[in-house]
Simulated scan of single mutants.
Amino acid sequence: MTAVTAHAAALGRALARYDHLTGIGLAGRDRFVLTHGEPHPANTMRVDGRFVLIDWESALIAPPERDLWNFAGGDPEMCELYSLRWALVEAAGYLSLFRRDHRDGPNEGASWRYLTDTLAKLETTTARI
């Protein structure tokens, strides 16, 4: 794929940085807590006047930044780890779609835009690495 080839260096930098940050995270296992994995408004529910997290199917014991990275809270390197993880998982999912037979409908068009946006974001965020 031309899009992947054009961003191969950024993908390589992102994967290397991810591995490095994972090592830092694993060294701090004493900080691990129960994390939800996808805290966003669609995974909340109001019960007895307060909000609670629902849909715990992706729960793990991990650094708290697994839930905080998108809210600018916690250790900056661990927030970077989970932000980078999100981008890499997104890219992998879209690449999987386009590596197999697919049609060229509106969903595929949107997926292609998301893929190219994600690759461009990785290019920008890894330029400083």
Rank of each mutant, 00 (worst) to 15 (best):
A3K: 03
Y18H: 01
S83Y: 10
Y82V: 01
T116S: 08
L68G: 02
L81K: 03
A10N: 07
A91C: 11
L26K: 02
M45H: 14
R50D: 13
G74M: 12
L34E: 07
V52G: 03
E65L: 02
E38Y: 11
A91G: 03
W86F: 14
H40T: 10
A62I: 01
F32H: 15
G73M: 13
D48A: 09
H20F: 10
W112E: 10
L81T: 03
T124Y: 08
G73R: 15
L95A: 00
E123A: 06
M45C: 14
A59N: 03
T126I: 11
V33I: 14
F98M: 04
D101V: 12
E38T: 13
Y114F: 01
E80D: 15
A72D: 15
L21N: 00
N70D: 07
Y18S: 00
K121P: 01
A6S: 11
L122F: 09
G74N: 08
A92W: 10
L88Y: 01
C79M: 15
G49W: 10
R13C: 09
A16N: 07
D117N: 00
F98Q: 05
D67A: 06
Y114Q: 09
N70H: 14
L26G: 00
V89T: 11
G49D: 06
D101Y: 10
I129E: 14
